[in-house]
């Protein structure tokens, strides 16, 4: 019996949460990927760069999490166990580079839920968008996440 997903979650906006980018977090993230680019890892290279500091790799914003607004909160709302979840799609739009010491505000919203039947059976697709803004409320980056739930 396929499970039911609570589709009334569409349109839900999660509580905005602030994130301050830590220098060490950028470096740990780059090293975990095995990307040893000195613009992420070497403070002197960063200081001499056009950004005046190291910058974060393109996918770094995925580390911006808050337990009231993350995948765990979404799964509770959907009534779905984490063992059923796969990452379907991900997109980043980057307007400005993320740099250490900066504080950003993240706002996540559920924009769509739809069902499809694939090779491995029925699946639900949950689409979330996260807008990342700076202190002056300018958009710095956006993320779009498609979570796949095996029903």
């Amino acid at each position: 019996m396929p499970i039911q997903v609570n589709t009334s979650v569409v349109g839900k906006e999660y509580p905005p949460f602030p994130v301050t980018v830590e220098r060490g977090k950028i470096k740990d993230f780059a090293r975990a990927i095995g990307d040893l680019n000195p613009f992420y890892l070497d403070d002197r290279v960063g200081a001499a760069s056009e950004w005046g500091d190291v910058i974060a790799p393109p996918t770094f914003a995925v580390t911006f999490r808050d337990e009231r607004a993350d995948a765990g909160a979404l799964l509770r709302d959907l009534g779905v166990d984490i063992a059923r979840v796969l990452h379907g799609e991900q997109e980043f739009e980057i307007v400005r580079q993320l740099t250490p010491g900066e504080t950003y505000l993240c706002r996540t919203k559920v924009v769509d839920i739809y069902e499809k039947t694939g090779k491995s059976g029925p699946m639900a697709f949950v689409v979330r968008e996260t807008a990342i803004t700076d202190r002056t409320n300018e958009i710095v980056a956006t993320m779009r996440n498609v979570m796949v739930i095996r029903l």
Partner: peptide, 12 residues
Amino acid sequence: GVGTVRKLGVRF
């Protein structure tokens, strides 16, 4: 070069 990516979207 770093800082060049404006958009990256993928399907797994």
